[in-house]
Design a protein around this nucleic acid. Structure first.
Length: 863
RNA sequence: GCCCGGGUGGCGGAAUGGUAUACGCAUCAGACUUAAAAUCUGCUGGCCGCAAGGUCUUGAGGGUUCGAGUCCCUCCCCGGGCACCA
């Protein structure tokens, strides 16, 4: 046991203990254990070609500390790692080099694994997973089939963001400032057939569930804002031309309906053509072309000026009967609400701006309550504050909120409206025109074939078939039966997308065109003769693949039972491990990954697969580590810190400790190479307190709990308490400070108890495990330090018999007293008034008041 | 524009409404050394003062309180998110 190094030779010690843990499989999580479970999860990495970034070990060290601490506390700990290995960079590399993305991905994984192992994290490597492994994505596909069966997946020809450079469509969330998030290339609108997941069906539950999770408030707020719930009403405005029917609008302010002076429909609104009168045709067509050509950026960010065009048609206000013009303007978007609004310029900033631009009337219908019935001191328009109604027949004088309810009810009674809730959340665009992703387990067939399949396995199909029309023929989406999974990727000649919107898979005819057994999913290339039997049907595989989010939506479940060939995880494993007790990862996933995974989890909950409906009950974001120059680390700035370099120069214990000592885990903080030296010195100091020059146990170490005196003993117990509390609260920087304080005291002491040092090593072990193991072993600790139960502090030792009390005069410190615990105010005051420095401030002045907080402060207020 | 988070020594940071600046870094001085490194000891917020001590100080300004880095109001700066969502 232990190495024989005389001084702190981390390059010898760290590999030694890493092999020790590996050989003893020290971190294996036990699915059958009777101990209480603790599941601590990292956001698993995308194994990029550039290797581990310093941000990875930051979060990973934090969870590792928790994992090791909880094991010492007697928990059965699940602490796993894996690879989120589908993704664009590997594919772009493949396009460039012509090599299969899998080979590049595997090389990167080998490198990541090496780097992560060198950091000494206590992962259960028996549970390592890889989202590109067919044994894994078989279950990603299986979950998709469940979504499909539930009617939560559909196809739609819809305008999507197409990136010519990446030759793929991107989700709204993957567009930043009108450019692709990956690469920063321009994007444009294109109509393409897409798979879409009906996440909006879960909008309310996704919102409601946020109330029950322990997440950073900012992250909850971001998800709330993303879901964007707003209560209001849908109102029907009859169009003056009865042939056109009604114009349906959504508004959150039905109380302002008497202030409507015009209507607006989005340029993409289906009624635009019908609304446009011949005289306006030219202007409207030009405007629509212009709006269509605008990029997202132009239409939102930069377009501070409103634009629009009159359609020539009029609508009738269902409340007032007023006749108002219908405009077409791109400040109204088709994707939200009904794509049409009632404009109330007096009480809406956007409508006001538009009305000013086109000289449309403005009718105020809300006034602040204190100005009601008083023509003077009206607020400036647009007025969006609270108030009561004016100029609203039958409702004037009513408070805003009440009018909102009443008007909605009354219009509903007339069949002209109803209260509704709208969400900003859109359905999730779930397909990519790429090679390197999970293939959809879907085959497109004709109606007759679909009916054949429906008869054979009705349970696999959605209530309504998913179809799309191509070249006049209706195609039906036929899912593969779960038993036919996984559907793997074929070899391709080129990884380059076709450029027409289809993925490279569209070029692999033998894989694509199949004879399929509608019952079993068994299939052969269509070039071969059709096998005998009614069940064999002709089909074309789906050529889209799933986005990278798919694999990361459920990986935390697979860790519970990673080798299971019959289910994504066994019900026993799912019930044993539940959901992660702590999930740590970057705030950049606050919306996307965390929202998608919650959606899938809720679907799995509804299916009875998982026993709880929120996947991540406690979430924490580690802060970003900036470069030495205080700027974001980037290759171009040359301020990137590579973990390998630090491990080579100072060891991983130093790196881990330094990352935790930098500042609060959640804070953004700059890297400082000098700070590394500081914590390294601390570890060397710990070593020297335990080990002498020749590698023997240091001469000051004795077997006497009283060694060093009662003060040192008290400090030890304070340290036990603080380190434990701080680890639980993820306050590692202050835990380390406390250990430094204790070690400084040990250093100043002539003798130190061996047991006290061993306790210190136990406290240090979660943070700097290698040196802790080594010294624990040398000091005669039995077995691995991690097997020793976490030390308990003695509360009796923390209570002092005397306490320091600060003496203030008029709130300013003028002296201090040492008083026995429980000293009364009189005792304290008498003692204080004997101190000359205190008396010099109180002398000759009447004492007006005395504030005494036992054990803390005595404040004498004079004059 | 709206919603969050944050401004504390030369630097990273610490402080249940109760001694502001713990711990670490850096600087300086000293010990050890032929010397250096390593290590150890000590100093180190500003101003006034030989000193004892005083006084000011947590982005700025007000307020609450016996007492405010901490609570409240107004403003400035930095970081993040959303952004014509009706």
């Amino acid at each position: 046991m232990a190495t024989h190094s005389k001084d702190y030779d981390f390059s010898q010690i760290e590999p030694y203990w890493q092999s020790f843990w590996e050989e003893n499989r020290s971190f294996r999580a036990d699915n059958a254990s009777a101990a209480p479970k603790y599941y601590v999860l990292d956001m698993f990495p995308y194994p990029s070609g550039s290797g581990l970034h310093i941000g990875h070990p930051e979060g990973y060290t934090a969870t590792d500390i928790l994992a090791r601490y909880k094991r010492a506390r007697g928990f059965n700990v699940l602490h796993p790692i894996g690879w989120d290995a589908f993704g664009l960079p590997a594919e772009q590399h493949a396009v460039k080099t012509g090599t299969h993305p899998a080979s590049n991905t595997q090389n990167n994984i080998v490198n990541f694994r090496r780097q992560i192992k060198a950091l000494g994290f206590s992962y259960d490597w028996d549970r390592e997973i890889d989202t590109t492994d067919p044994k894994y994505f078989r279950w990603t596909q299986w979950i998709f089939l469940q979504l499909f069966k539930q009617g939560l997946a559909y196809v739609d020809e819809r305008p999507v963001w197409w990136c010519p450079e990446l030759r793929t469509v991107l989700a709204n969330e993957e567009i930043v400032d009108g450019r692709s998030e990956v690469g920063g290339f321009p994007v444009e609108r294109r109509n393409l057939r897409q798979w879409v997941l009906r996440i909006t069906a879960y909008a309310e539950r996704l919102l409601e569930g946020l109330k029950r999770v322990d997440w950073p408030d900012s992250t909850k707020r971001m998800q709330e804002a993303w879901i964007g719930r707003s209560e209001g009403a849908e109102l029907l405005f009859a169009l003056e031309n009865p042939a056109l029917g009604d114009l349906k609008v959504f508004t959150t302010r039905p109380d302002t309906v008497f202030g409507v002076t015009y209507m607006v429909v989005a340029p993409e609104h289906p009624l635009v053509n019908a609304l446009t009168l011949p005289a306006q045709r030219g202007a409207v067509d030009a405007y629509r072309r212009q709006a269509a050509a605008k990029s997202d950026l132009e239409r939102t960010d930069l377009a501070k000026d409103k634009s629009g065009v009159f359609s020539g048609s009029f609508a009738i206000n269902p409340a007032s009967g007023a006749r108002v013009p219908v405009w077409i303007a791109d400040y109204v978007v088709m994707g939200y609400g009904t794509g049409a609004i009632m404009a109330v310029p007096a009480h809406d900033e956007r409508d006001y701006e538009f009305a000013q631009q086109y000289q449309l009337p403005v009718i105020p219908v809300i006034e602040p309550a204190e100005h009601a019935g008083n023509g003077e001191a009206r607020p400036p328009l647009p007025y969006t504050g609270d108030g009561v109604l004016v100029h609203s027949d039958g409702y004037s004088g009513l408070p805003w909120a009440e009018a909102k309810a009443r008007i909605t009810e009354d219009l509903a009674a007339k069949g002209r409206g109803r209260a509704t809730v709208n969400y900003k959340l859109r359905d999730w665009l779930f397909s990519r025109q790429r090679y390197w992703g999970e293939p959809f387990p879907i085959v497109w067939v004709d109606e007759a074939s679909y009916k054949t399949a429906a008869a054979l396995r009705p349970g696999d199909l959605p209530a309504e078939p998913v179809t799309y029309v191509q070249d006049g023929a209706t195609l039906y989406a036929l899912p593969l039966p779960p038993g036919a999974l996984p559907l793997t990727l074929p070899e391709v000649q080129t990884y380059l997308p076709s450029g027409t919107g289809e993925s490279p898979l569209a070029g692999v005819t033998p894989w694509l065109e199949r004879w399929i057994h509608a019952g079993t999913g068994e299939s052969i290339p269509a070039s071969e003769p059709r096998p005998a039997g009614e069940a064999w049907v002709r089909g074309r595989r789906e050529t889209n693949t799933m986005p990278q989010w798919a694999g990361s939506c459920w990986y935390y479940l697979r860790f519970m039972d990673p080798a299971n060939a019959h289910a994504l995880a066994s019900p026993e494993a799912l019930s044993t491990w539940g959901v992660p007790d702590l999930y740590v990862g970057g705030a950049e996933h606050a919306v996307l990954h965390l929202l998608y995974a919650r959606f899938w989890h809720k679907v799995l909950f509804d299916l009875g697969v998982v026993p709880q409906d929120e996947p991540f009950t406690k979430l924490f974001h580690q802060g970003i580590i900036l470069g030495e120059d205080g700027e974001k680390m980037s290759k171009s700035r040359g301020n990137v810190v590579n973990p390998d370099t630090i491990i080579a120069s100072h060891g991983t214990d130093t790196l881990r400790l330094y990352l935790m000592f930098l500042g609060p885990l959640e804070a953004m903080k700059p890297w400082n190479p000098n700070g590394i030296e500081g914590v390294h010195r601390f570890l060397q100091k710990v070593w020297r307190e335990c080990i002498g020059r020749e590698g023997e146990i240091a001469s000051k170490v004795v077997d006497d709990p009283a060694a060093g005196g009662p003060a040192l003993r008290k400090l030890l117990h304070e340290t036990i308490r603080k380190v434990g509390d701080d680890i639980e609260g993820l306050r590692f920087n202050t835990a380390i400070s406390q250990m430094m304080i204790f070690v400084n005291a040990v250093q100043k002491s002539d003798q130190v108890d061996r047991g006290a040092l061993r306790t210190l090593l136990q406290l240090l072990a979660p943070l700097a495990p290698h040196i802790a193991e080594e010294l624990w072993s040398r000091l005669g600790g039995s077995g691995s330090v991690m097997l020793a139960p976490w030390p308990a502090y003695d509360p009796a030792l923390l209570i002092a018999s005397e306490q320091k009390v600060i003496v203030q005069v008029n709130g300013r410190k003028r002296g201090e007293l040492i008083l026995p615990v429980g000293a009364t105010q009189d005792t304290a005051l008498n003692a204080a008034l004997k101190q000359t420095e205190v008396v010099s401030f109180t002398e000759g002045k009447p004492v007006r008041r005395v504030v005494y907080v036992a054990g803390k402060i005595l404040n004498i207020v004079v004059e």
